[in-house]
Design a protein around this nucleic acid. Sequence first.
DNA 1: AATGAATGAGGTTTCATTCAT
DNA 2: CATGAATGAAACCTCATTCAT
Lengths: 188, 188, 188, 188
Amino acid sequence: MADNKHENILMAAQKLFAERGYDGTTVPMIAEEARVGAGTIYRYFENKQMLVNELFRGSVARFAATLHEGFPEQNDFRKRFRHVFYRLVRYSRENPEAFRFINAAANAYFLDEVSKSDFEGFMDFIERHLDEGKKAGLLRGLPAQAFIAIVYGTVFHLSRMFEDGTLEPSDELLAGIEESCWDAVSAD
Amino acid sequence: MADNKHENILMAAQKLFAERGYDGTTVPMIAEEARVGAGTIYRYFENKQMLVNELFRGSVARFAATLHEGFPEQNDFRKRFRHVFYRLVRYSRENPEAFRFINAAANAYFLDEVSKSDFEGFMDFIERHLDEGKKAGLLRGLPAQAFIAIVYGTVFHLSRMFEDGTLEPSDELLAGIEESCWDAVSAD
Amino acid sequence: MADNKHENILMAAQKLFAERGYDGTTVPMIAEEARVGAGTIYRYFENKQMLVNELFRGSVARFAATLHEGFPEQNDFRKRFRHVFYRLVRYSRENPEAFRFINAAANAYFLDEVSKSDFEGFMDFIERHLDEGKKAGLLRGLPAQAFIAIVYGTVFHLSRMFEDGTLEPSDELLAGIEESCWDAVSAD
Amino acid sequence: MADNKHENILMAAQKLFAERGYDGTTVPMIAEEARVGAGTIYRYFENKQMLVNELFRGSVARFAATLHEGFPEQNDFRKRFRHVFYRLVRYSRENPEAFRFINAAANAYFLDEVSKSDFEGFMDFIERHLDEGKKAGLLRGLPAQAFIAIVYGTVFHLSRMFEDGTLEPSDELLAGIEESCWDAVSAD
DNA sequence: AATGAATGAGGTTTCATTCAT
DNA sequence: CATGAATGAAACCTCATTCAT
């Protein structure tokens, strides 16, 4: 266990913010979870709000990286769609707390403008990707945002179910849902 | 404006909890929004936690009523599916704060067991409805929960977009999305 | 004992700031001295800094009122000088804590601009008064500020001595010192 | 700049205590100003209170030395009075921070008994000097303490004015004020 | 000897709750 | 009934002090 306090604090905050929200999480709670003194947190973060913003931006950046990494070079839209779907699922499953936190915090009053625009930039990537599919005539005559609602909304809810045990994840299930989502957005 | 303080307080709390979350909302904030004294809140609710639970249960009950009301008697699954979809959308659009609050609060640490089981009961209705479609062989070979993720998740995300103006609602758009969802879950 | 909490808090703060300075005085100390809960102080003052500034301005205003009240109408400079001297002494003796506080806090970093300019306005009155004496040829060829140093400085130090018992005040003593000050500033 | 940390710390503390008071100055502030680590301060001083006391005593000792040095041997009271006045002024001008700190800290709750009695001893020297003048019949029929109020109080206030630029020091001005003070205390 | 990261006691401030009016 | 002034526990944050390096 490398004694990286900065990272420990962020991970502790991640967990607690996901469980109890920003205002429901106290700094001493974070300190205890991170196994540091409460004052130590203020050596690494200016205040609680800076901490939550730094955490949010880091999580969004890793989320974006997950999505971008391995994004198919050739313009095979079906392949790209599948990539995006599986990467959304992968991030939500490998970082369930981060994923839950990002979605709960997006647009929250404690986020600063940089954080909000970082998140928008992330969503824009998905939107641009779907727009390509529309231009190629592969998708229905709905706004790209509607497709986001379907795909992202589905993954979001799925992640909740995986987390609380309502649903057990399996390759088969995910393949089925990916196909469902594709059928929901593809033309004809 | 009838001077129904009990109701005013609940509506004020609804609005604020939706905007700032449970812990980010103070009792004096609720009092000001409801145009009552802070002490008055304690004549109608034992404490803040009881208030949030009563609010949650009321919202879930109205949500359930919206869904049940007009549920097609005859066993026409396609019609019933459409009913459920449109009623989810109707509730989310007519009570955006309540809808946002319900989804943010579901499973939150401040809910008591009664509230949690009320919400589960509500979800069970949707699940049972989808199970019928499966039994009738009209839906794909996926768990009913997966369909919930798709439909409910889509409506949830859609509602967010309507609220923040990312997407403009229209009959045509909703019809298109309803069809998408149906295509996502129906067999063939 | 009228239960004027606002006033009680100001008086408690006055006493403690005079004894221990602004930073050496804690809000709970003020609360205890004022016989109120710590939180109550924040119903009357936005924060500690607003409290110290309101206190300062009130004290300066009463100091100025003491000086202005009964200021001789006729332009008899000697009489006016005596008036100013005795009123400085009166305020410092009737409000030793306020006087000590004003002198310690003038120019302090926790005072806002309004407070500082209030104090300057007060000092300006004394300066204008002395300037009249200079114009009338009754005072020495020194800047009015030098006279302030002599008169105000003397009264300030005198007040300290009265407070800590180093010197016992008496009419005779004050008359003697007033004469000394006059001899220090008057021409010839 | 010799690397005398002990001295650097004292000088840094001097400056900061003069500007912000004892409680308004933090140990890290002193460390930064002295260009040492915060922990280093505790190698040279037991704690903050010991530091402030040591500083106070050193400043008072240098103040006393300034006054004693060159004190006229022959019993020429007028000369001695002038010496004292000019040495008070000299110290206050050459060590404005120390002078301001001494006067603000005298009697403060954080000074220990040794520090307080050191300061009293210093004041006693001035008092004894003035008593001689009284015995020689050269001064008015006022207590020596009253003369201290006049002379020390004047110099104290003058120093404030020099520091904040309200008054510009000059040989002529000082000569004039010294004469004023003498006229304030001398018989006839 | 010197440092500065780490800490927890204690500072300022907020807020759920009570209660006299 | 309704209120909002009052409160103290607990929140956020600071800082004197310690101690491993």
